[in-house]
């Protein structure tokens, strides 16, 4: 049988650079065992130094390749980089195939890079909570940048990206009308727009579309707010990455020095609190109300009660436990 190492011992080891201990702490975060909560409280106290960058975009827009090239450039500048790469869980089996490492082969074996793959595992805040605790592990152990690479575009990963200091939205050329279609969603959250695959001839159209969209929004925002940048990159040719790093650093500077940036940090804290509460609530709820769930949903399915009545009955028997 394997031996159990207490989480506070793992924190001691992680803080002196033991990558196996860091990795095990991330697993404990995913498992949400109460045993690890004091250890993560300690890590949270130590964290707060790293620049956390969320990278999102439609599937196939080149996120993983961009992360790989960006990380190579940051490594060349002597920075240590942690990467949390999120891939979707199967809605049927709950399993996953996480393949972000395939595109990051250039980073393999570099001890200054820590890559952790995480699966989304449905909703209820668990993913956001666990991934941000994994970010804390990297932050507290001295990584300069922590990159959260989300799954392809949708609601949940917009949420995770919002927990980063700087949100990068990757758009690939040739998606034309799709950009129009997602304008009301993901493009709004970008601090930096990357147009990837700019070695392609149709990239200029995407760049100008984005710039036009940004000028349309200018009239509404005050002078203190951050003006999103549009950065063309080509991961294949390694172009645009100095500009991207400059944009990231400027945004980090803005976060530190502006009141709007400080507000953003408070919003991130609020987001984490709500996601953690949501996760605790859903864990306890499912643990205590599972038998009732089957019974009441049966009644609902037979149309003997209404959806509201079913929900009220389900909630009526639930009592949240107080803090341990």
């Amino acid at each position: 049988m394997a031996k159990f190492v207490p989480s506070d011992v793992l924190v001691e080891r992680a803080l002196v650079g033991d990558s196996a201990a860091m990795a095990r702490l991330m697993s404990r975060a995913e498992a949400a065992t109460p045993e690890c909560r004091p250890a993560f409280a300690r890590l949270y106290q130590k964290a707060g130094q790293a620049h956390i960058v969320g990278i999102t975009g439609v599937p196939g827009s080149g996120k993983s390749t961009l992360v790989s090239t960006l990380t190579l450039k940051l490594r060349a500048a002597g920075k240590r980089v942690g990467i949390i790469a999120v891939d979707p869980s199967s809605p049927y089996s709950g399993g996953s195939i996480m393949g972000d490492r395939i595109r990051m082969s250039a980073l393999a074996g570099d001890e200054g890079v820590f890559i952790r793959s995480m699966a989304t595992r449905g909703a209820h805040g668990g993913m956001a909570r666990a991934s941000l605790e994994a970010v804390d592990v990297l932050d507290a152990t001295g990584f300069d940048y922590v990159i959260i690479e989300t799954v392809g575009v949708g609601q949940a990963e917009v949420e995770i990206a919002r927990a980063a200091h700087t949100v990068v939205v990757v758009s690939a050329p040739g998606l034309g009308d799709d950009i129009q279609a997602i304008k009301a969603g993901i493009l709004e959250i970008a601090d930096v727009h990357v147009v990837s695959k700019c070695d392609r001839p149709d990239a200029n159209r995407t760049i100008s579309d984005l710039k036009t969209m940004l000028t349309l929004g200018l009239s509404l925002s005050g002078g203190a707010s951050w003006q999103p940048k549009v950065v063309p990159t080509s991961s294949a040719q390694g172009e645009g990455f100095e500009e991207l790093i400059t944009a990231l650093d400027r945004h980090a500077q803005w976060m530190r020095s502006s009141s709007a940036g400080q507000d953003r940090l408070r919003h991130i804290a609020e987001f984490r609190m709500l996601k953690t509460a949501e996760d605790l609530l859903s864990q306890q709820f499912l643990a205590t109300r599972k038998p009732a769930l089957a019974l009441i949903s049966g009644q609902l399915s037979e149309r003997r009660i209404s959806p509201y009545q079913a929900a009220e009955r389900l909630l009526a028997g639930f009592q949240l436990e107080g803090p341990a």
Partner: peptide
């Protein structure tokens, strides 16, 4: 198959060295 059995599977891709695979296994715990 393993995904469909509910497991989380990380795939490295082709042509890795033994050292790279060991490092990845440790980081992925």
């Amino acid at each position: 198959c393993l995904r469909d059995a509910g497991m989380d599977v990380v795939y490295t891709g082709l042509h890795r060295s033994p050292e790279e695979v060991v490092a990845a296994a440790v980081q992925e715990d």
